[in-house]
Simulated scan of single mutants.
Amino acid sequence: MHELGIMMNVVQTVENFARKNDLTQIETLVLQIGELSSVIPRYAKACYPAAVDGTMLQNTKLKMEILPGNCLCSDCRSVFNYLDNKGICPDCGSKEWDLLGGREFQIKEIIAC
């Protein structure tokens, strides 16, 4: 489970941002995680309390937004969800597509008190 290390890096990044911007308390941290990302949201959420323990984010709420793994069909140009359709275009049956999104892992928002 690599999520603990990732969440500890997120905490460090947010703390650095807070120091540079003279923030003393953060209310909410919002992360965006693509459904095709190597980060598993439920594991990241489970690791969060350990990652923030003893830091300025200790009392911070964590919110996660899951971004869909959408593809653009190379043949018919339809947009479809990769997981829902197992990588096959539901409109034309093509297995040729370009990934539009879903591998993201990013800090979307830091909400200060």
Rank of each mutant, 00 (worst) to 15 (best):
M1N: 09
M1A: 13
M1I: 09
E3G: 06
G5E: 14
I6D: 02
M7Y: 01
M8N: 10
N9L: 08
V11H: 03
Q12W: 07
T13A: 15
V14Y: 00
N16V: 09
R19C: 07
K20Q: 15
N21W: 10
N21R: 13
Q25G: 09
E27F: 06
V30L: 06
V30I: 13
V30Y: 09
L31P: 10
L31Y: 07
Q32H: 13
L36I: 08
S37V: 06
S38Q: 14
Y43E: 05
Y43S: 11
A44Y: 01
A46W: 01
C47R: 01
Y48P: 04
P49G: 07
A50D: 12
V52S: 08
V52D: 03
D53I: 01
G54D: 00
M56N: 08
Q58E: 15
Q58I: 05
N59M: 07
K61R: 15
K63P: 00
M64A: 09
G69E: 01
N70T: 09
C71V: 00
L72P: 04
L72D: 13
L72R: 15
C73Y: 02
S74Y: 03
C76Q: 11
C76K: 12
C76S: 10
C76D: 12
R77D: 06
V79Q: 11
F80Y: 13
N81W: 02
Y82T: 01
K86L: 10
P90T: 06
D91T: 12
C92W: 09
G93P: 00
G93H: 05
S94M: 10
S94I: 01
E96P: 00
W97E: 05
W97G: 03
D98M: 13
D98G: 03
L100Q: 13
G102A: 11
G102S: 13
R103M: 11
Q106W: 05
E109L: 07
E109W: 01
I111G: 07
I111H: 04
A112W: 06
